[in-house]
Design a protein around this nucleic acid. Structure first.
Lengths: 166, 166
DNA sequence: TACTAAGAAATCGTGCACGATTTAAATGGA
DNA sequence: TCCATTTAAATCGTGCACGATTTCTTAGTA
């Protein structure tokens, strides 16, 4: 993006110009960073046969299984329309099982198979490899992570509020 | 995500546990932040008839038109497989025109229509409205933006390097 | 002039993401 | 008990994203 060299819009009120540009750049930077990171994960995850969202789902399941679709959705910030087909693909790959909860037939319990558990060992080297790719110093990463965590937490509240209004 | 309350994995070698967790959380935080931001933009962009990627494309075109598909791709970090259908939708909505460059028939020039230019006025209020939604203080936003910009710049280099290797 | 190589955009197939709707199960009264 | 309400997941339609391939154009070169 040529954002740095952008001249001020001639129509934007002066008092908004700075803030508007900052906002645009921040949101765009988040958008770009997210996409670039997914791309950097690809060569690490391809050998495991996982996409990045699938990797996130497995991480969640390795920490807590069985989980319901709803619990996974809460953990990952995704809804059933996204998770159901993703989990079906993981099931087709033999990594998880899906079954109705006998105690509440509305729920679906998802759980890693033996193969899915075995994958955890292979996946163990991913975070360290990924860390090597990240272009900031350790303290900067920590600071970025800290700010982002507060940011996400705030956004989630705003998002929940917006959902309740409608 | 229950990341804050996550207990340490019992299988991860101790010396990697901290770094691994930090990495996972940072990447996941970026992924989450990006998705949440797109969601926050939706109510602002819906009245304009734009999605967030379409809004980004229009921002780029308002700054520089005509642009080729390749130039837009460079600016937004997207390839022609993503942009071509997106631009066709903008064209179908009457916001841009697409035509082959007479000087080089390989290129396609994209340019806002009068309607696309008019939309710029309406879109002027979007950044300020978005800014109100963001949950951090101005100095924190600035710091986040600064770190993210360096981060993205570094990731782009890493990504370009990876592309050249293959 | 031909012939190859390089470039730009479009196309194809797969997967993620979500709003809106649907189906089915559980819950809470009248 | 019966029925309305709520809840959980699945489904449908649209749009983004990208690797791989294809088509067409331009450039370079024997």
């Amino acid at each position: 993006m040529t954002a740095e060299t952008t001249t001020m819009s001639t129509r934007t009120p002066a008092q908004f110009a700075g803030a508007a540009k900052l906002d645009q750049q921040l949101c765009f930077a988040l958008y770009s960073a997210s996409g670039l990171m997914t791309r950097l994960y690809r060569p690490l995850l391809d050998p495991l046969g996982l996409t990045y969202p699938q990797y996130l789902a497995m991480l969640a399941l390795w920490e807590r299984a069985p989980s319901t679709v709803g619990e996974l959705g809460e953990a990952l910030g995704l809804d059933s329309a996204t998770l159901t087909p993703l989990l079906k693909r993981l099931e087709a790959g033999g990594l998880v099982t899906r079954r109705r909860d006998p105690a509440d037939e509305r729920r679906v319990l998802v759980e890693p198979t033996a193969k899915g558990q075995a994958l955890r060992e292979q996946a163990g080297s991913v975070p360290a490899a990924m860390l090597c790719n990240l272009p900031l110093e350790a303290d900067e990463l920590k600071s970025l992570h800290h700010t982002l965590t507060r940011f996400v937490s705030g956004l989630r509240k705003a998002d929940a509020g917006a959902a309740n209004q409608s």
